[in-house]
Design a protein around this nucleic acid. Structure first.
Lengths: 226, 226
DNA sequence: CATCCTCTGTGACTTAGTCACATACTTGTC
DNA sequence: GACAAGTATGTGACTAAGTCACAGAGGATG
């Protein structure tokens, strides 16, 4: 039950479907949902689990990923504020086990909704339905992009892209280990280390334990097209 | 407009949501949809296209795939009878361009529904909505499996699996080129040729131009676990 | 049977992933 | 400050996968 008008206000701004939804539904929504907090690096869903709740992320991010037989990982997509773990919704609607893992990457604040409500509301409220549909469609696009990446693109280009995405002109430095990059890209730590070393020798980046600094953004960008 | 009672009967059996749906909706559904036929190897959707119709497959199959920069292909999933090109639906609902290609693999007979009806019905009829939701969820699972495959599994195991999936004890022979296997698995023709040659030398299969015959199903299955 | 087209085979090379182990950097503890 | 433990990175040697260029082989057609 959520009653603080400030919080309600903020959530209504963040989850736009609440603005388009029926007043009755909105009242019901805040009556039956609750807010939870979660620390970093906490398991949210385990592969094979049946989901009993849907989490709508208010603050923080989560990473949804697969683990291979050999222990390697690959990130399928991330969930940020305003989004929700739609795989959960998908499992709820089709009553199947969750096909991946999800962990919090930063401390998370989230709205929790029971599966029963998820299903009931999808029959009652068009705005809620559209929200779910939109999310799951977006995830499908995300995952299709991942397929394209791993099936066709070279690791050095993908890594260059990763570095460019995770920095900007204001902030040339990132705190990240080779292993976590490898887990994102679905490759192995050694491969990442070697390519980074190569980039460093070409003076595109500099590295130290746990950090990477972009030294020549333009030349790194050229890598992408090459 | 579909009026033949035999056809209506058959479609109602095949598309189960019609059994659970409201009588008004069903009447409307058959009034506004049409049946089309399509030959083999016809382009259904091009990447980047905007979709104006949703096709529900009655007979035949279609393949949905990505093409990489280098020209290689990878199959995301197939659409069979009773299913529909849900990516289209997803594009319709979120008004985005289609992110892949789709072609007919066999002659296709399909029901065609306009985007306007797709959206309208999803607001009116729970059974239709559930059908769409189920399909898109299934596709998401499919594509996640593809990610897992290409990111973590060795090509020889995936190929062994492919051969086992496409034959059975009654029909040990398949008509297929190395290139089309490669396009399914997202690898290159040469790699497929070499692995098949290897399987042949181990007497698990025999090959001739355009056909592969399983000779030792059990030993090929062992490859999977190995 | 000559020609064309498609399909398959192969060597040489590059890129990616695996395995085993060596170094290095941090942090906490005595 | 010395040391140990834990985490992060570096590297060689090897296997697997993808690329490129080209050689043949098998069917179809005139």
């Amino acid at each position: 039950m959520i009653s603080d008008p400030n919080i309600i206000d903020r959530l209504t701004t963040q989850f736009r479907f609440l603005q388009y939804a029926d007043a009755d539904f909105v009242r019901n929504f805040f009556n039956t949902s609750t807010i939870v907090q979660l620390a970093s690096d906490q398991a949210i869903c385990q592969q094979g689990m049946h989901c009993s709740h849907l989490a709508l992320v208010i603050e923080g991010t989560a990473r949804v990923y697969k683990i291979g037989e050999n222990g390697r990982e690959i990130t399928l997509y991330r969930i940020g504020p305003g989004e929700s773990c739609i795989l959960t919704a998908s499992c709820i609607m089709s009553n199947k086990p969750f096909p991946a893992f999800a962990v919090s990457e930063e401390p998370i604040k989230a709205l929790i909704v029971s599966t029963a409500d998820v299903v009931r509301w999808s029959n009652q409220e068009a705005a809620w339905r559209d929200y779910l549909f939109q999310l799951i469609s977006d995830r499908l696009s995300d995952v299709i992009s991942v397929v394209e990446e791993v099936a066709f693109r070279r690791v050095d280009r993908r890594l260059a892209n990763y570095l460019l995405q995770h920095t900007d002109h204001g902030n040339r430095r990132m705190q990240v280990t080779h292993q976590s990059i490898a887990s994102d890209l679905g490759t192995s730590r050694e491969v990442v280390s070697r390519i980074l070393k190569d980039f460093e020798q070409q003076q595109m980046i500099s590295t130290s334990r746990g950090t990477i600094t972009l030294e020549d953004r333009d030349r790194l960008s050229e890598k992408l097209a090459e």
